[in-house]
C-alpha cells in the first residue's frame, strides 16, 4: 500500500517538476534569443504569465468534439510519456512506471500527442491548420528515421529494450553512451532539432507564413493547455536524451544542468538560422543524420 502511495506522489511531483522546469526553459530560451538579438527580452517567468492570462480568457468558439479533446489529448499524452521516462537514476519519487521494452513503447507514444493535435486542427477547418498538419507529419517522417535508427542500434548493441537497462549499462561501464556508441549519438543529436521545432525546422507553426499553423484556431484555455503540454513534453524529450546518452542524473541539479546544456543546442541553432522549406527539412534529415544512423547500425551489429 505504501508503495502505491509513493508512486502516486512521485507521479504528481514529476508532473509539477516537468511543468515548472519546462516553462522556465521556455522563458530562458526567449531571454537568450533576445540577448542574442541585442534586446532586453521578457522576464524568464513570462511563460507562466502567458499561460495564466490565457486561462483567464473566455472562450466562445465551438468546432465540435475533437476540437475540445485535442488539447486534453496532448497534455495527457505528454504526462503519459513523462511517466515512462525515469527522471533520476535511483530516486524514491522519480522512477515511475518503467518496464522492459519501454523504448519501443516510447517510440509510439511520443508521436501520439502530435496525432491528437492533427485531429483537433483538422476539425477546425482552417486551411492554415491543414497545411501545418501536413507539414508536421512530413517533417515527422523526416526526423523519426534517424532517431529510430539510433535507438534500434542501441537496442541491438546492448541487448536491452528498456531505458533503465541502458542507464544500468552506463553506470556499470562508467562511460556515457555518447562516447561508447558515438554514431548513434550523432544521429540522434542531428535529429533532435526537428523534435523541438525551432528554426530552421519551425515549418509547422511558421508564424508569419501559416499564421501559427495547427493552433491557429485554438485560443484561450485551449492554447494554455497546449503550452503546458508543450513545456512538459520538452522536458520529457530532454530527459530521455540525458537518460539514454548522457548517463542520466543522480540529482535534480545535475539533471537541470545536463538538460539545459542539451536544450541550448536547438535554441542557439534556431537564433542564427532562417526557416527551411518542407522538402529542405526532409532532405536534411534523410541526409547526414540517416547516414550516421546506418553507420550506427553497422557499428552495433558487428
Amino acid at each position: 500500500m505504501e508503495g502505491i502511495g509513493y508512486k502516486i506522489l512521485g507521479a504528481v511531483l514529476t508532473t509539477i517538476l516537468a511543468f515548472v522546469v519546462g516553462m522556465f526553459y521556455g522563458g530562458f530560451s526567449r531571454k537568450i534569443t533576445a540577448r542574442i538579438q541585442n534586446r532586453v527580452g521578457p522576464p524568464v517567468w513570462q511563460n507562466f504569465l502567458d499561460v495564466l492570462k490565457l486561462l483567464f480568457k473566455k472562450t466562445s468558439v465551438r468546432y465540435g468534439f475533437m476540437h475540445h479533446i485535442a488539447p486534453l489529448w496532448m497534455i495527457s499524452m505528454s504526462i503519459t510519456t513523462l511517466m515512462f521516462v525515469p527522471v533520476l537514476n535511483d530516486g524514491l519519487f522519480f522512477t515511475n512506471l518503467n518496464f522492459s521494452g519501454d523504448i519501443i513503447f516510447l517510440l509510439y507514444i511520443m508521436v501520439m500527442g502530435s496525432l491528437g493535435m492533427a485531429l483537433g486542427a483538422g476539425s477546425t477547418g482552417n486551411p492554415n491548420s491543414a497545411i501545418g498538419v501536413s507539414r508536421g507529419l512530413t517533417q515527422m517522417v523526416g526526423f523519426e528515421i534517424p532517431w529510430v535508427m539510433a535507438l534500434v542500434a542501441l537496442m541491438i548493441q546492448y541487448k536491452t529494450t528498456s531505458v533503465t537497462g541502458l542507464m544500468e549499462v552506463q553506470s556499470q561501464s562508467g562511460t556515457w553512451l555518447m562516447f561508447s556508441s558515438p554514431f548513434a549519438f550523432i544521429a540522434a543529436l542531428l535529429a533532435m532539432p526537428g523534435m523541438f521545432r525551432y528554426s530552421p525546422f519551425d515549418i509547422v507553426g511558421a508564424p508569419s507564413e501559416l499564421a501559427s499553423g495547427p493552433i491557429s484556431e485554438f485560443g484561450g484555455k485551449y492554447l494554455s493547455t497546449m503550452m503546458t503540454s508543450g513545456s512538459i513534453f520538452a522536458f520529457v524529450k530532454l530527459t530521455l536524451y540525458v537518460d539514454i546518452f548522457m548517463g542520466g542524473a543522480s540529482n535534480l541539479i545535475v539533471l537541470v544542468l545536463k538538460t539545459f546544456t542539451l536544450y541550448m543546442y536547438p535554441v542557439l541553432w534556431g537564433t542564427v538560422s532562417a526557416r527551411f522549406r518542407t522538402e529542405q527539412s526532409v532532405r536534411y534529415f534523410w541526409g547526414w543524420p540517416t547516414f550516421f544512423g546506418f553507420i550506427a547500425l553497422i557499428y552495433a551489429a558487428f
Binding site: V61, S216, E217, G219
Partner: peptide, 9 residues
C-alpha cells in the same frame, strides 16, 4: 508579443 491569428490575440 505578436500573435498571428485573432483567436489568440
Amino acid at each position: 508579443r505578436g500573435s498571428a491569428t485573432p483567436r489568440q490575440a
